[in-house]
Design a protein around this nucleic acid. Structure first.
Length: 316
DNA sequence: CCTGACTCC
DNA sequence: CATGGGAGTCAGG
């Protein structure tokens, strides 16, 4: 509501800005320094292996998987995470891993081809959904296409899509129809995944991680619809989690080949390492290679690697 | 202990 | 009538 009011009343924006700043102060600026361990001089999180139903890890006490990055002010928090003297932090994250998993599992040829060519997938979706006669900037078209790419395969409806990208519900429905017309195998994958899970009561990742979804046969339409969204999400998010875990295992094995190289954090599609400055480039190449070759898919996996003294600098 | 609002992928 | 998935922390009540 305040977001809507902000367009016409300055006080609404002021309230939202104040809340965001208080959140940064309370959750990060005030709290994290108190959690620095006496002997190690570091903050140590707990990674929970049996919390998230998709196979992801979660992080708590403190949660180091929700350190701000979206806004410039929030991103400053990452500048406080600093490598030991003589060392650097290496941040390596999978580029669009869930869309690549989708391309592989749905066997959607136009997505597979695009990833093999190295095309920008959001631009391709923009062309399929919006055409090229909308009058909007390429940047705005790409932003909307990105929302569609990540939302539709999990069951987002025209109602919320319309709110997200600022169009009428009727227009949003036309975009959704155009998306599935352009990616017919994605439609088929969604339908077949739900049908099989309804018959068996279980849905699985590419590597066999299972989640029970008994609500698929509920007579309550809302409960059933929610279960269908969970069912479609699990193979995508869960397979991506499996891939990252395999990469972590592989990298754990080869870490000793570079003295002083340490794995220090995982954030769903990202791994953070600490390495001696002298072997930083060698370590970055090793990390990138093992992440990109953790599993064989019909599309390439692409990893972006950054090096810096702080976590903030390593992501740039 | 719960809710809403904020943070992340 | 309700309206993408997965998480954690904080303040306030």
């Amino acid at each position: 509501m305040l977001e809507e009011l902000a367009a016409s009343h300055d006080i609404a924006r002021e309230i939202l800005d104040w809340r965001a700043m208080m959140k940064l102060k309370g959750t990060y600026v005030d709290a994290l320094p108190q959690l620095v361990h006496q002997k190690t001089g570091r903050v140590h999180t707990t990674f929970n292996q049996a919390v998230a139903a998709t196979g992801r890890l979660s992080s708590s006490d403190p949660n180091l998987q929700n350190i701000p990055i979206r806004t410039e002010l929030g991103r400053e928090i990452r500048g406080a995470f600093i490598a030991d003297p003589g060392h650097v932090l290496i941040s390596a994250d999978y580029s669009q891993i869930e869309l690549r998993v989708l391309a592989h599992m749905a066997q959607e040829q136009s997505l597979i081809d695009a990833f093999r060519r190295g095309d920008d997938i959001h631009d391709q979706t923009s062309a399929k959904v919006f055409g090229d006669n909308s009058g909007l900037s390429a940047h705005e078209l790409r932003r909307r296409a990105k929302i569609i790419n990540y939302a539709l395969l999990y069951g987002k409806t025209a109602f919320t899509l319309a709110k997200d990208i600022g169009v009428t519900q009727q227009a949003a429905q036309e975009f959704i129809d155009a998306y599935f017309a352009g990616y017919p195998s994605v439609r088929r994958f969604i339908d077949e995944t739900i049908a099989k899970a309804r018959d068996t009561g279980v849905v699985s990742t590419l590597f066999g991680r299972r989640r029970r979804v008994p609500e698929l046969t509920s007579r309550n339409g809302q409960i059933r619809a929610a279960a269908e969204r969970v069912t479609v999400n699990l193979p995508i998010q869960g397979t991506a989690a499996d891939i990252l875990k395999r990469a972590m295992i592989d990298l754990h094995e080869v870490l000793p080949s570079i003295p002083g190289l340490r794995m220090i954090l995982t954030v769903h599609d990202e791994l953070v390492f600490e390495a001696p400055e002298a072997t930083a480039d060698e370590a970055a190449a090793l990390v990138k290679h093992h992440m990109e070759h953790a599993v064989p898919l019909d599309v390439p996996l692409d990893v972006d690697v950054g090096v810096g003294r702080t976590w903030k600098d390593a992501k740039a």
